[in-house]
Amino acid sequence: MSTVPADRWRGVVERTWRPAALLAACLAIWHLVTATGMVEAYLVPSPAKTFGLLADKWSYLWGHTWVTTYETILGFVIAGLLGVLVAVAMVYSRTIESTAYPILLFAQVIPKIAIAPLFVVWLGFGFEPKVVVAVLMAFFPVVISTVTGLKSVDTEMLELAATMGGGPVKTFVKIRFPAALPHLFAGLKVAVTLAVTGAVVGEFVGSNEGLGYVILQANGNMDTPMLFAGLIVISVVGVVLFLLLDLAEKLMLPWHASRRGAAVTTLLAKG
């Protein structure tokens, strides 16, 4: 890289000032709405009060954040592995595809919040039912995107592979799977945000820790500042996990990222 640090920073500023300005505007509106008394403080706490509480109760929130993050990541990883496996099976076997698709769709359209209590009954109040709900939420987009990716490979490329005689395993490892990665990553990015929702839904239904529990408690106590603080932390968890995946994609698929143009991390990190 020939760019000097000063240039690099100017580039970062150029790319980030718009979203930063929008965020600042939202905070300003929030502040005005609460400061002028347009909305009662017990309904919407002021940003100052919310962020003040975030700072004060940081250690309390941090513990619960870690619980939710742990459930989310575990659910996401299981959904990712399972989703890719099922997608591969579906792409290579028409029988498996036609058998599994209706069940998958059925599992997807069932409202997770409606079956979450069942998992509590079956698995108790620990982290397991939360992970299961997160898996259920995150699984579907991974399967769909991986199937699409694996099927999007050029037929000509596959014919070429047949004339090269590498066999199905080499064809999968060297051609089909790498070609599916951009689709897979798109699915994983949707999945990770859904996994956060899944974990929180699981906590709503029955738990004594995690950010879902924090929000439920705050709601019960009419503690709106804590409710807002919980919401902010959940969003931050989702955004950070999303950005990590975006970064992983950029590192693993530079050939694709360079053609796709501005993604969030390229926006922030390109120098």
Binding site: E156, E159, T163, G165, A179, W255
Partner: peptide, 17 residues
């Protein structure tokens, strides 16, 4: 499928990565 040939298609069919 025979392995003792070389095949060139209209589209180059290269692996992008």
């Amino acid at each position: 499928p025979r392995h003792d040939i070389g095949f060139v298609f209209q589209r180059a069919a290269l692996l992008e990565w």
